[in-house]
Design a protein around this nucleic acid. Structure first.
Length: 323
DNA sequence: AAAGGTCTCCGCCAGC
DNA sequence: ATGCTGGCGGAGACCT
């Protein structure tokens, strides 16, 4: 379950920004903030200069052998979709899949995973411009074109560039807990509000500044999560009809109001489970869930665990203070 | 653990 | 016509 050793695979060319995302999340030492550090290695077919798609080269320090010890193997956007995957890269990806390492692709990196066969029978996504091509070329891959990222077992694929960041944060949240993920988001100055999508593996970032005063309503809602809140209440606060509010919300957010609300509640619940010793029923109450059962229900559905298990995995040790 | 009552979502449509 | 709004109702999700 650990994620200490992170490798990034690059081919004959590499997309600078998507590579940068992975470097930003996994390749910096933020231990001064109590954030985890990783053994981070960029690996190519052979060490040496690799051109980026932006007209400069990066010097890759390792070859693919270095990836064999990685807990997480990442593939940034893959510039040369037409070219066959180098056997060494295929081998490294298959090896990673076989030994149970996590795999993460950003944007068209999914093509490299698919070419190596590690997406066969799995659900995956890529940049929307390339989704149909991915589906056509690799019929055994179930392509989900409209999500920011998809997690299928240990394989996480993400859409366009910024969705890669969301996927990385999702991974960090899963492995290290919500507190760490939030601290990392803060450190990287990512927007605080995150909206849940329709499925458990989707999260959508809200635009930082909303023209509609939507952000106001969201802040307001987050402040009173412990109380019953209906979509009509949010609409009233936004001074819109429920119908219009839902439409604007969807346009700005990609999620429905209720789904977003539920995701916020779960988020709060995770924090309380991690940072306090409140009984599950009390946690439920403070997040606006009517009962512990309701909380457990949603925890199971959207997180695949139970509140107690989450606390056991990420909670503060017994004896520390509640708030 | 299941089921009914309630709420949400979304396509449709009419009105401005 | 064009574009946005908001009401309606069925289907389905959610809550207790």
């Amino acid at each position: 379950v650990g994620m200490d050793d992170v490798a990034v695979l690059v081919g004959d060319r590499v997309a600078a920004f998507e590579l940068g995302i992975l470097c930003q999340v996994f390749g910096l030492d933020r231990s001064d903030d109590g954030l985890p550090t990783y053994d981070f290695a960029v690996c190519g077919v052979r060490p040496g200069p690799v051109p980026t798609t932006s007209g400069f080269d990066v010097t890759v320090p390792y070859d693919v052998e270095r990836a064999r010890s990685a807990d997480l193997v990442c593939v940034p956007a893959w510039p040369d979709l037409g070219a066959p995957l180098h056997p060494a890269l295929t081998g490294a990806l298959q090896d990673a899949a076989d030994r149970g390492a996590r795999l993460l692709s950003v944007c068209t990196g999914a093509f490299a995973l698919a070419a190596a066969g590690v997406l066969d029978g799995r659900t995956a996504t890529t940049h929307w411009q390339f989704a149909s091509r991915l589906a056509d070329r690799y019929p055994r891959v179930r392509v989900e074109p409209d999500v920011l990222y998809v997690e299928d077992g240990r394989v996480l694929t993400s859409a366009g560039a910024s969705a890669g960041l969301d996927a990385c944060l999702h991974l960090v949240r899963q492995v290290h807990g919500a507190r760490t993920a939030n601290a990392l988001a803060r450190r990287m100055v990512l927007p605080a509000h995150r909206a849940g999508g329709q499925a458990q593996y989707v999260e959508t970032a809200l635009p930082a500044a909303s023209d509609d005063g939507l952000a106001d309503v969201l802040d307001w809602a987050v402040e009173r999560l412990d109380r019953p809140l209906r979509v009509d209440d949010l609409a009233a606060r936004a001074a819109m009809s429920p119908r219009t509010f839902a439409r604007r919300f969807g346009e700005a957010t990609g999620a429905t109001p209720h789904a977003w609300l539920l995701e916020q509640r779960l988020h709060r619940a995770e924090q309380l489970l991690e940072q306090t010793h409140l009984p599950v029923d009390a946690v439920a109450g403070r997040c606006g869930f009517g009962s512990g059962d309701t909380l457990r229900h949603h925890f199971a559905r959207r997180r695949g665990t139970t509140p107690a298990a989450h606390r056991a995995a990420f909670g503060a040790p017994a004896g520390s203070f509640d708030s």
